[in-house]
Every structure is written in structure tokens, then in C-alpha cells.
Design a protein around this nucleic acid. Structure first.
Lengths: 128, 128
DNA sequence: CCTAAAACCGATCGTCAATCGGCTTTTGTA
DNA sequence: TACAAAAGCCGATTGACGATCGGTTTTAGG
């Protein structure tokens, strides 16, 4: 899932938990980058078609909101990396993430361990 | 770092630990996908310019090999995701990876824990 | 120095994001 | 119900970039 620059920025905007129509999004981005309402509109449409935004008609306009949160999206991207570059996504990614972890602080590594511990606890609960 | 389909395949080829010139790479890919030597050559060149392959002249031809292994490359991609989609790469990625870990088997989660433990041990050693 | 092999250059094609003008559809209201 | 504004949708264009390959230049080795 390769996104363009504007698409990324718009997604970030919706990850703040907002719900907005094209006009509002345009109002937000017009100041910092110019462009026209139409550009925003087609970007919203592209993101919708990619399944990254949800929308619902409300009066005149569609109200858009994030279809998945940042965390889920990033997890999806990580998953894709595995599919693209590895025959055995699981284990390769694990090793790679370990390599990546070299750039994390001790605190962050601790946080990761806690999260894994938590998911493990949830796991054993659901399987009993 | 977005790669094209052929680029990915060529990279995978070199991750098997091989060193090869354009002709050899072409011999390998010709059967499965056709194309010309020139196509392979320019793909090798693109990968070289992207820093993903190293090369060294040997006689007539360049001998190419992977500039970084699969693991390092994937770690790099994960890092880029953080840069692209998060103000705070470290912690967001950690949370996202935890989400991703839901798709891993218990064994794989254990493996990850072991790797992190190992990296932690290496860490405390180097900092003392 | 000459020649074959390899590298390099440049053009073309396909895909896709960004951009935006203009047409169509929808909706609220008179 | 008819109409005007608002919003959506369509199509064209531009700019990147990977894939592809023909043709020219460079180079290594005899």
C-alpha cells in the first residue's frame, strides 16, 4: 500500500479522531499547502477506495473518518513487507524487527516486552 | 524505499548470498520471465544507485552482491514506516508491532522475546 | 590498436498520485 | 415541483518512476 504525500497527510489528519467533509479538510490544508477543493476531494475518494477512510452521507456531503487507526494501518504495512520480501513472513519479520530494535531506547524495548507479555496473557486466556 | 516487482525479485536473488554479474542474473531470470539482458542490467544499476547492491569490476563485468542483508533491509523499511506515519516513530511502531504480533504464532512470539532478550544482553555488555 | 563484451544513454510505455476544469447529480427550499 | 447552490464525479494533464530495449560508447584483453 504505497501512498502519496498528500494521502499520508490526510490520513494523519483523520487519525486525530476527526470526522470531516471535504470542505473542512480543505479548510485545514489550504493554508499550509494551497491547492483546490477538488484535489482534496479526489484524494479523499482515493483513500476511500483504498479502504483507508470510511464515509457516510450527511445532508449534502460525505462525512469521512478513518477506517482503521494508525496502529492497525502500520501493522498492515508491516505485514505487507513480510509478504513482499520473505518466503516466511513471520520469522523473517521477527528477526528484522529485532534488528530494528537496535534503534530503540531501553524504555521502548521494555514497553515492547510488556506489550508482548500482555498479548500472551490474552492469548492463553482465550485458548482455555 | 518503494521497489518495483523486478527489483524485488533480483534483490531476493542476491539475498541467497550470491555474487553475480548481469549475465548470470539474466540467465537465471530469462527462463521464468523472459526479457532482455539490458532490462536486467538497468535494474541492477538502479538497485546499485539505491544502495541496495554493491558492485566491483572484475575483468569485463561488474560483480554484484547484496549491500545489506534481507534483515537489515526490512529493518530499514520498518524504520521508514515510522518516519512516514508517526511523529514518534519508536513508540508508535512498538504499539503497531504489538498489533501485528496478533498474527504470529506462539512460537514466533517466543522467538521474538528471545531475540529482544539477546539484544538487551548485548546492549548492557557494550555500555559497561 | 582492434574487437568483442559490457556499460551507459535515451526513448517509450504503463502505472499512479496530484491537480483541476467542467459536467452531473443531489438536496433543501421557495 | 422546479430551481439554484452545493457537492460529487469524470476526464485530461502533468510529473515520478519502474520496466523495457535499441543503439552508442567505453573498456579490457589479445
Amino acid at each position: 500500500m504505497q501512498l502519496g504525500e498528500l494521502e499520508k497527510q490526510v490520513l494523519q489528519y483523520f487519525w486525530k479522531g476527526r470526522t470531516a467533509d471535504a470542505k473542512s479538510v480543505y479548510a485545514h490544508f489550504e493554508k499550509q499547502r494551497g491547492g483546490t477543493l477538488n484535489t482534496i476531494q479526489s484524494t479523499l475518494d482515493r483513500l476511500f477506495k483504498k479502504g483507508l477512510l470510511s464515509r457516510e452521507k450527511q445532508g449534502h456531503a460525505f462525512q469521512y473518518s478513518a477506517a482503521m487507526d494508525r496502529q492497525a494501518f502500520i501493522a498492515k504495512l508491516i505485514e505487507e513487507i513480510g509478504e513482499d520480501y520473505s518466503a516466511d513472513p513471520g520469522s523473517t519479520l521477527i528477526a528484522a524487527f529485532s534488528t530494528f530494535s537496535e534503534k530503540l531506547s531501553d524504555d521502548q524495548v521494555s514497553a515492547l516486552e510488556k506489550l508482548i507479555e500482555a498479548r500472551r496473557a490474552a492469548d492463553s486466556k482465550s485458548s482455555c
